[in-house]
């Protein structure tokens, strides 16, 4: 599987080591600064508190592994969300074709997604991330598409009437106006991906999910599993609040993903 190895070697591993090998105090500072930039003192305090709890739980390193997988998968989900969301938002035929597929995708339990990718990629982190992407993409695509098609047609028509190319309409009118929806898509995509990356421990994703599953199996490390569950909660709260703040902030772009 060269795709798997390529992606793992070129993206996953460097990004993961960027998170796991940097000293924790540097990362806490960096994340707190980002939180401050997005949502002010309150958010920075909340984020620092969440990270503090994770350190107290003794699961910093595992949390960073999970965070790395989640962020990579969310980035891909957002790319898919924008591409397909824009296509659906602009063309009702694409919408009619894709929507039933997305609906079907959303009715399926998260477990099921692991199975086919296990067959394809074996028991690795990559499998869990791909499953997470596929699990979360429908939500992100739908929210983006609704945001794009919710833009008043008059605005789009006026842009077209002033001679914009379709690319200009997308990048200068539709995407900026759907910013709220994009941020919401990122928020929801992140939550879905996190849920899946944790379940992905069953096929070798490691990180916090592995601690939870191992805790169920062995009583001797039950306590660690319980702590890992709590760490997931705080990681989730932190990322949820940060993306929500990015959504609410009156900026031109969503600056969260590139620098976190």
């Amino acid at each position: 599987m060269s795709l798997r190895e390529g992606v793992t070697g070129a993206v996953l591993n460097p990004f993961q080591s960027l998170l796991t090998d940097t000293p924790f105090y540097v990362l806490v500072t960096v994340i707190a600064i980002v939180a401050y930039a997005l949502g002010g003192w309150k958010l920075a305090a909340l984020t620092t508190a969440c990270l503090g709890v994770i350190i107290y739980l003794g699961l910093w390193s595992d949390s960073m592994v999970t965070l790395a997988g989640t962020l990579v998968a969310t980035a891909v989900v957002m790319v898919l969300g924008v591409i397909f969301g824009v296509a659906m938002g602009r063309s009702s035929r694409v919408d009619q074709f894709l929507r039933p597929l997305l609906d079907a995708g959303q009715t399926m339990p998260s477990f099921v997604y692991l199975v086919p990718f296990l067959g394809l990629f074996g028991a690795t982190r990559f499998t869990a991330i791909v499953a997470g992407i596929i699990y979360a993409a429908p939500v992100a695509i739908k929210i983006t598409a609704d945001g794009i098609s919710g833009i008043s047609p008059t605005v789009v028509q006026s842009a077209v009437a002033s001679g914009s190319t379709p690319w200009q309409v997308i990048t200068k009118v539709q995407l900026p106006m759907a910013r709220q929806s994009l941020a919401l898509a990122a928020n929801q995509g992140l939550i879905y991906v996190l849920a899946m990356v944790v379940v992905g421990a069953l096929v070798g994703a490691g990180g916090l999910g592995y601690d939870v599953v191992a805790g169920f199996v062995q009583t001797s490390i039950f306590g660690k599993g319980l702590a890992a569950g709590l760490a997931i909660v705080f990681l989730g709260i932190m990322m949820d609040r940060m993306t929500q703040a990015a959504a609410a902030a009156p900026a031109r772009r969503i600056p969260s993903k590139s620098s976190t």
């Binding site: 796991t20 105090y25 306590g223 702590a227």
Partner: peptide
């Protein structure tokens, strides 16, 4: 700060915990 911290302080204070090891908190939860 992140990149610099990563390059300069790489590998220190990572708080890594091997899979089989437990902290006191984990033991008290046990």
């Amino acid at each position: 700060i992140w990149i610099l911290g990563f390059l300069v302080l790489n590998g220190t204070a990572t708080l890594a915990l091997p899979a089989s090891e437990l902290t006191d908190l984990h033991r008290s939860l046990n």
